[in-house]
């Protein structure tokens, strides 16, 4: 194939105009000191530096993101998990280990039947699949938005019940995460599921 070369004038062939243009472009980029939040307006203009200073600046994590699974509390700050062990059984990498309370187990409030004695999630094994969240009948475990789980040794990365509860429950991120259409009081997963089941055409 023959490539058609553009005919250059003698002035262009001196390279000087293109060198001057090069100085202009590089200078313009060099002096672009504006720092914008995240991508957004960065790609549209050359006036901002693209680097995100990671530990200080972080991405806004989108809704529906599957981060680390944590235990959540209800509106009265009570443990919702009832130690049914469904998540433990469904967990593909076997990251969850629940120690049930046994016959003499005590709950932290009146009226609650049962709650786990121990609830460990090995964050080194977790694959963030979300099956535990999907299977939980009590809406007690949620994949929240944490993605940078770091530690200095392996033991540190096995999160126990207290840690999971404090990470998951305190700021109601689970609720904000799943709040829809002004529903603020909790998640009501099963209400929705029941409604969905009812809305399906009759099976017979």
């Amino acid at each position: 194939m023959k490539v058609e070369r553009a005919k250059l004038t003698w002035f262009e062939r001196l390279y000087i105009p293109s060198i001057l243009n090069g100085f202009k472009v590089t200078l313009r980029h060099f002096f672009s000191w504006k720092r914008s939040k995240v991508y957004g307006d960065k790609q549209s203009s050359y006036s901002a530096k693209l680097t995100m200073q990671y530990p200080e600046e972080k991405w806004p994590v989108p809704d529906g993101y599957r981060g680390a699974p944590y235990l959540v509390k209800d509106e009265d700050a009570n443990t919702k998990c009832v130690s049914c062990q469904l998540c433990e059984f469904v967990c593909p990498p076997k990251a969850i280990r629940i120690t049930p309370p046994g016959q003499s187990g005590e709950a932290d409030r009146e009226g609650a039947e049962k709650m786990p004695k121990e609830f460990d999630i090995n964050m080194l094994r977790c694959i963030y699949c979300g099956f535990c969240q999907e299977v939980c009948p009590e809406e007690a475990i949620y994949l929240l938005k944490d993605y940078a789980i770091t530690g200095e040794n392996r033991e540190e990365l096995i999160f126990n019940k207290e840690k999971l509860l404090s990470l998951g429950g305190e700021d109601k991120r689970a609720y904000a995460h799943h709040t829809q259409d002004g529903v603020t009081e909790g998640i009501k997963k099963w209400e929705k599921k029941t409604q969905e089941a009812k809305d399906q055409p009759a099976f017979h």
Partner: peptide, 10 residues
């Protein structure tokens, strides 16, 4: 540093 600034990095 100069290469970074020219390429809109830090």
């Amino acid at each position: 540093r100069i290469s970074a600034l020219i390429q809109d990095r830090i």
